[in-house]
Lab assay of single mutants.
Amino acid sequence: MDETGKELVLALYDYQEKSPREVTMKKGDILTLLNSTNKDWWKVEVKITVNGKTYERQGAVPAAYVKKL
Rank of each mutant, 00 (worst) to 15 (best):
T24Y: 03
E17K: 12
K43D: 14
Y13I: 09
Y55L: 11
Y15N: 01
I30N: 00
T54G: 06
T24W: 04
E45K: 10
L69M: 09
K67Q: 13
L31V: 05
S36Y: 06
A11Y: 04
W41K: 00
L31K: 01
G28A: 02
K18T: 11
K68I: 14
W41H: 01
I30W: 04
T49N: 09
L8S: 07
L69G: 02
T37R: 08
E45R: 10
A63N: 03
V9E: 00
Q58N: 07
V9F: 03
V46G: 04
K18V: 08
L10D: 01
E56T: 15
T24L: 02
N51E: 11
K6C: 15
Q16R: 09
D2M: 14
L34K: 05
T32M: 09
N51K: 08
K27F: 03
M1Y: 12
K6W: 08
K27I: 05
K27V: 06
Y13C: 15
V50W: 08
D14M: 04
K39M: 10
T24D: 01
V66L: 15
G5W: 11
T49H: 11
A11T: 03
E3A: 13
M25N: 01
E7L: 10
E22D: 04
M1C: 15
E17I: 06
I30V: 11
T37V: 09
W42Q: 00
T54L: 10
W42I: 05
V46T: 11
T54I: 11
A63L: 01
D2G: 14
W42P: 00
M25D: 01
S36N: 07
D14W: 05
L34P: 00
V66N: 00
T24S: 15
N38A: 08
G28Q: 01
P20T: 09
N35M: 06
V46C: 09
D40V: 12
R21V: 10
G28N: 05
K68D: 04
P62W: 06
M1G: 13
D14Y: 04
A60W: 15
A60F: 15
T37A: 12
S36H: 07
P62I: 06
E45L: 14
L33H: 00
A60L: 15
E45T: 09
L8Y: 15
L69A: 03
D40N: 11
T37Q: 11
D14I: 05
L12C: 12
E7I: 14
L34H: 02
D14N: 07
M25C: 05
W42A: 04
L69H: 04
S19Y: 04
L33K: 01
Q58P: 03
L33F: 03
L34S: 02
A63W: 03
A64D: 12
K43V: 15
W42L: 05
K43S: 12
W41T: 03
G5C: 15
M1Q: 13
D29H: 04
L33S: 00
V23F: 10
D14E: 04
M25E: 02
E45W: 05
W41S: 02
G5Q: 13
G52F: 05
N51Q: 09
K39I: 09
K26C: 11
V44A: 01
R21H: 14
M25H: 02
E56A: 15
V23G: 01
V44Q: 00
K26G: 04
N51H: 09
V46S: 06
P62Y: 06
Y55E: 10
K67M: 14
L33N: 00
A60G: 07
G52D: 07
N38E: 11
E17G: 15
K18A: 10
V44S: 00
R21K: 12
L34I: 15
K6H: 13
A60K: 13
K26A: 07
K18F: 05
K68Q: 09
T49P: 03
I30C: 08
K47C: 14
T4W: 12
D2A: 13
G59W: 07
V66K: 01
V50T: 08
L10A: 04
N38K: 06
K18M: 10
Q58A: 11
A11D: 01
V46D: 00
T4E: 13
S19D: 10
V50Y: 08
K27N: 03
S36I: 07
S19K: 05
K6M: 11
L34T: 04
L12H: 02
A11N: 01
Y13V: 11
L31N: 00
V61F: 01
E45G: 12
V23M: 07
E22G: 12
Y65V: 07
G5R: 14
T32V: 15
G52L: 04
Y65Q: 05
E17W: 05
V46H: 07
E45Y: 06
D2H: 14
T37E: 14
Q58F: 06
K68L: 14
Y55H: 09
P62S: 03
V50H: 09
N51F: 08
V50K: 10
D40G: 07
V66Q: 01
K27D: 01
V66T: 01
S19W: 05
L34Y: 02
E22M: 05
M1F: 13
V66Y: 03
E45V: 11
L33I: 03
V66P: 04
D40E: 11
V9A: 09
L8C: 15
K47S: 12
E56P: 14
A64L: 08
M25L: 08
E3V: 14
V66S: 00
Y13P: 01
V9M: 03
Y15L: 02
G28P: 01
K47F: 08
E3D: 13
V44N: 00
K47H: 11
K47M: 10
A64E: 10
L31D: 00
K53H: 12
S19N: 12
R57M: 07
N38R: 07
T4V: 12
Y55F: 13
A64F: 09
R21G: 15
E3I: 13
I48R: 07
E7P: 09
S19V: 03
N38L: 06
T32A: 08
S36G: 10
K43A: 11
R57C: 09
Y55G: 05
V44M: 00
V44P: 00
